[in-house]
């Protein structure tokens, strides 16, 4: 079953600015899904539409089986907005209690979960302190705790590691993996591609209000899968036919794994070529992202120049 299934989501702001131009997305139960895109791509607008903060101009689909925009569905969703601002007059524990009570969480449950989450997110001992004494990273962790107070089936996090130090990021990644293992669906919206690459099962790349790519990182980068062999001699003539590219002393074979090119390695050895390195290569998420952005911005693309 899909945790999120969006079809043809459009948003046009006053002044005719088209923020979303027919976005369709599918996030499965129990997976971590990453939404990538440059600034102004419409990622936050899409998230806010799911959270009923923004009204879609046109949309269909479901979130946790309920029509998009259904307020009751929010009971099972945890949300961390980007640049969230908690009331400065509250303590950490009060923040958790207040927002959990808005979600309809019982007092006894709130108390138990608040303590658990403060511990889990490294905020033990900070619960009774006013949040104006918190660092940015601590506020971010408190925000994640807030999003988890109602034990949501779906967790939507907008830039969750923003301002968090490397240790904290690792803790958050571990937490997300743990939540995923417990069957929670997680929707991540982030600029940090390396972070997403480490935790996401599937990603979508959004550029100028449209999803241009969607799938597992494996499937999206399969075209770029290749073996690069660096040799220490002039490439023999036959390599120009058997390898896809030969650039100086760098030989590249696309779409193959290391086992399937053993015969080529043997042949190079027979021809007295010293092999300096053999690297299985794959496009990184960053490369994929850049490719998607470049494609949209290319002069021939219909999507350029919105």
């Amino acid at each position: 079953m899909s945790a999120i299934n969006l079809q043809d989501v459009h948003k046009t702001y006053r002044g005719k600015v088209q923020a979303l131009r027919g976005v369709s997305l599918d996030v499965h139960d129990g997976e971590i899904f990453g939404l990538l895109g440059p600034n102004g791509a419409g990622k936050s607008t899409l998230v806010k539409i799911m959270m009923t903060v923004i009204h879609a101009t046109r949309a269909s689909g479901t979130v946790l089986g309920l029509p998009i925009g259904n307020v009751e569905g929010l009971r099972q969703i945890g949300y961390l907005p980007e640049h969230h601002r908690f009331p400065q007059y509250l303590t950490g524990t009060q923040v958790l209690h207040f927002y959990a009570s808005l979600s309809g969480v019982e007092r006894s449950t709130r108390k138990k979960r608040a303590n658990e989450l403060l511990d889990r997110l490294g905020l033990r001992g900070w619960g009774k302190r006013k949040i104006n004494t918190y660092s940015k990273g601590m506020l971010q962790r408190l925000g994640i705790a807030q999003a988890l107070m109602n034990d949501p089936k779906l967790l939507i996090l907008d830039e969750p590691t923003d301002g968090v130090d490397p240790v904290g990021r690792r803790e958050i990644r571990d937490l997300l993996s743990e939540l995923k293992a417990n069957g929670h669906a997680i929707f991540l919206n982030s600029h940090l591609l390396s972070e997403l690459e480490m935790v996401c099962d599937r990603v979508a790349i959004m550029v100028k209000g449209k999803v241009t790519m969607q799938g597992t990182i494996e499937s999206l980068t399969s075209e770029s899968k290749r073996i690069e062999i660096e040799i220490d001699c002039t490439p023999p003539e036959w390599t120009r036919e058997d390898f896809d590219t030969v650039e100086g002393q760098l030989l590249t074979k696309f779409g193959h794994d290391i086992e399937s090119i053993q015969s080529l390695i043997d042949r190079l050895r027979r021809d007295q070529c010293t092999i300096r390195s053999i690297k299985p290569m794959r496009e990184s998420l960053e490369d994929l992202f850049m490719r998607a952005v470049d494609y949209i911005d290319s002069p021939g693309s219909h999507e350029s120049g919105t």
Binding site: K48, M51, T52, V53, V71, E72, G73, L74, R75, I77, Y79, P81, H83, H84, R85, F86, P87, Y99, L102, S103, G104, Q146
Partner: peptide, 15 residues
Amino acid sequence: VSEGSIELSLSKPIT
């Protein structure tokens, strides 16, 4: 209704 604050309230199951 300021940015960063209202999202937290509107994302709760309250009309």
